[in-house]
Amino acid sequence: TETVELHKLKLAELKQECLARGLETKGIKQDLIHRLQAYLEEHAE
Rank of each mutant, 00 (worst) to 15 (best):
L9T: 01
K10G: 13
L40P: 12
K8L: 08
I33R: 06
E17F: 11
Y39M: 04
D31W: 00
G27P: 00
A44Q: 14
L23Q: 01
A38R: 13
R35S: 05
R21M: 04
L23A: 00
H43E: 13
R35G: 02
K26P: 02
A38G: 13
E45L: 08
K29R: 13
T1W: 08
D31G: 01
C18A: 02
L36W: 01
R35M: 04
Q30D: 14
Q16H: 08
K8P: 01
K8E: 10
E5P: 15
A44W: 06
R35H: 05
H7I: 04
R35N: 04
L9W: 08
T3M: 15
E17H: 07
L36T: 03
A12C: 08
K26V: 13
E45M: 08
G27C: 01
A44H: 15
I33G: 02
E45C: 08
E24Q: 12
Y39W: 13
K26H: 14
E13T: 08
T25P: 10
Q37W: 05
L6T: 05
Y39A: 08
Q16M: 10
G27I: 01
L11Q: 04
E24T: 09
E24M: 08
L9K: 10
L40Q: 10
Q37M: 06
D31M: 04
H7D: 08
L6S: 02
H7L: 08
R21H: 14
L14R: 00
A38F: 08
H34C: 09
E45G: 12
E42I: 10
Y39Q: 06
E41V: 11
E2S: 10
Q16P: 00
Q30I: 14
L11S: 06
A20E: 10
Q30P: 08
K10I: 09
R21Y: 06
L14W: 00
E17S: 04
L19T: 13
K8C: 06
L9V: 02
L14V: 02
H43N: 09
H34F: 11
E2R: 08
L11K: 10
E5L: 08
K10R: 11
K29L: 02
H7C: 06
T1M: 09
V4R: 12
D31S: 04
L6K: 03
R21S: 01
C18W: 00
E41Q: 15
K15R: 12
A38W: 06
E5W: 11
A12G: 10
H43Q: 09
G22N: 05
H7M: 08
E17M: 13
C18T: 00
L19Y: 07
H7E: 14
T3C: 04
R21T: 01
E42W: 04
H34I: 07
L9Q: 03
K8R: 11
K8I: 03
Q30Y: 08
A12V: 10
Q30S: 12
K15I: 08
L9S: 03
L9A: 05
E13H: 03
L6F: 02
A44C: 15
G27M: 00
Y39G: 06
R35A: 04
L36D: 02
E41G: 12
R21L: 08
T3H: 07
E2M: 14
K26E: 14
K15Q: 14
T25C: 10
L40I: 15
K8T: 08
L11V: 09
E24G: 07
R35K: 05
T1D: 02
Q37L: 07
A44G: 15
E45V: 09
H34G: 13
H34L: 12
E13W: 01
E42C: 12
